[in-house]
Design a protein around this nucleic acid. Structure first.
Lengths: 349, 349
DNA sequence: AATATAATATCAAACGTTTGCAATCGAAAC
DNA sequence: GTTTCGATTGCAAACGTTTGATATTATATT
């Protein structure tokens, strides 16, 4: 049925070793025979079998990308970044979407290893640094090149790349404070997510810096979905002394928050400020104009892939590489301008 | 380094044929030996080599998904759908994002075949039915199970699934007409895209049904991106006799259109109506509220994968299967309510 | 006790490549 | 006319599985 190297050898009248060498531009083949073989291969419509090749080469030119939520526009940009560099280097990527499901994450990781991918990029659905060891020990058991995206290695044994989430949370909150909001709440996503908990820490740190007391009732977490943002906003507003601003775990949550606010007829930014995180493309749309913290998504995807590919090809200098990017505050229309002489001085962090 | 079936055989003191059968729950193995082997495998941390298995089985439990734009929220939902059913059936999916680049599409298709995927789901970047044969002959040369997503087979040789784009274009335009808009323009995406040209045909057909003349100046095409929608809206507005409504090739374009309109201070829906296509999640957000044509994205992804898997496993009744779903008009806030007694009768299509 | 039968285990080929080593072949060198 | 050398080419093993055919063993049957 399918044509193999042996078929070519038969019609080109040579051994299949020669065919292999000719087709792969290996040295030591007569130019004419090479040409003859190439012609025959073309005529027969030969398509090399990457599976067979992978078996002997112990390399599949395949990488795995494990992400928690392909529907959040943050991740497609990442995926595009890794995919672009992967394909530029002749690699193909397995997409694994976990829906924040740890079990699924484990299943995928196992499958990827069985499929003998050359490396893995993963956004773990839980915080490796705080998780109890047993849960996520498996990540440390992976001997493949692996880069952790937006999360840190629990052992320090893997490269990772992320934005400085703590700082991101800090400048977001600082901005709210400077814009004159005082009762600032936090609506996070998954409590167990690394990025989420770092952002929360940044939030707390900013409040502390400005000597604003931290109110535990103002700190909420649930999901990285807008429904969750909507619901938590509802509950925050029903507090006896509700907040006048909120910093959210990501932009999607913020959209839910905005929806709630609009429904309640609360004016943004006049009476209520909101700052998101990620700067997904939709946050910049004129109807939304969400103030947020920017992550260079496509670039981060590219970087992650480059780091991984270097590691795969043994080019990385001494293994583990930690890349931390600077977050950037994007001021738009969901926070008011600083025009209150509040006379506040930021304490050093 | 890595432990193989032979290692297990050695310590379990049996042949590796036995190990294989034991681990795969094949019959004819003594319960005790099986248990012993399973134990050994566990102790050694054995991970089956899917590459080797794929070579002998001629099956990789892998499918390819080729889409033109992972960043358009339409496609991540699709991807999630196919991935969910794939993973439920023990399949892994290669994600291939072409950025509407035909060359890239070809490269990917070749790579997928070389990697011996069991099947492919593809949204072709050009219209197969109208493309000149040579260009897209390659799709017909693919002997793998293949389902065409949102596009039709040029030969009828492949299954496909899509929404009725013609009808979608028709009801979108009809709605604009019934809402009282009269100078209705079309801002499409890729002219060569199947779905786009079908939607355009539907648009024309609706105008004709209502005896509204078709103005070629009102028919524009470029990209499926919002920048393109913005730019084309600009140019339409600079026409001596500009339109008062627009039907766009997809929601993303509509967002660009809306942005332009807002910038120009044109009131929507009072003075200008816009209808999109796809009903991506963001179209429903309170700040956007775009009237559009709905496609059940996740479901379509699931269906595509199910059809493909059936074909792979030889379950499909007699090969080619054509699935065409009904589009649904979602009326929101970018078109005004029908409150003009225009006294118009729809001609039968 | 000898034979038939069923249960279990092994052998070896196959899947389609790559590659170290050996073999061949001309021609150049002596 | 040998010998030697370099350029080509071929051989065969290896990668890690699966599986049909066969061999072995234990049990049941007479």
């Amino acid at each position: 049925m399918t044509v193999t190297i042996k078929d070519i050898a038969r019609v080109a009248n040579c051994s299949y070793a020669t065919v292999s060498r000719a087709l792969n531009n290996k040295p030591g083949i007569n130019a004419q025979t090479r040409q003859r073989i190439v012609n025959v291969a073309g005529q027969l419509g030969y398509q090399p079998n990457a599976i067979a090749r992978g078996l002997v080469m112990q390399r599949t030119h395949t990488i795995g990308l494990v992400i928690p939520d392909i529907v959040n526009p943050f991740f497609p940009e990442i995926a595009r970044g890794v995919e672009d560099v992967a394909s530029d280097h002749g690699y193909t990527v397995f997409l694994c979407n976990t829906n924040w499901d740890q079990t699924k994450e484990n299943v995928y990781l196992k499958a990827l290893q069985e499929k003998r991918v050359d490396g893995i990029i993963i956004t773990p659905s839980i915080d490796l640094s705080s998780a109890n060891g047993t849960d996520y020990a498996y990540l440390n058991e992976i001997s493949l090149p692996l880069v952790i995206f937006s999360g840190q290695s629990s052992t320090g044994g893997h490269s990772y790349i992320e934005i400085d989430n703590h700082r991101g949370g800090f400048i977001a909150t600082k901005h709210l404070i400077e814009a004159g909001y005082r009762r600032i709440a936090f609506i996070g996503g998954r409590e167990s997510s690394h990025s989420n908990s770092e952002r929360l820490k940044g939030y707390k740190s900013a409040l502390t810096s400005y000597e604003i007391p931290i109110d535990d009732n103002f700190i909420t977490n649930h999901d990285f979905y807008s429904e969750s943002g909507y619901a938590l906003m509802e509950s925050l507003l029903s507090l006896p002394n509700p907040p006048d601003a909120v910093f959210t775990g990501n932009d999607i949550i913020a959209l839910g928050v905005l929806e709630c606010l609009q429904k309640r007829g609360i004016r943004v930014p006049e009476d209520f400020g909101v700052v998101g995180f990620d700067n997904i493309i939709f946050s910049g749309y004129p109807q939304i104009q969400l103030t947020t913290i920017s992550q260079p998504q496509y670039l981060m995807g590219k970087l992650a892939a480059e780091i991984l590919l270097n590691e795969i090809n043994g080019l990385s200098t001494k293994g583990v590489r930690k890349t931390i990017l600077e977050p950037e505050l994007i001021i738009r229309k969901t926070t008011r301008k600083l025009n209150f002489p509040y006379n506040i001085r930021e304490k050093s962090r």
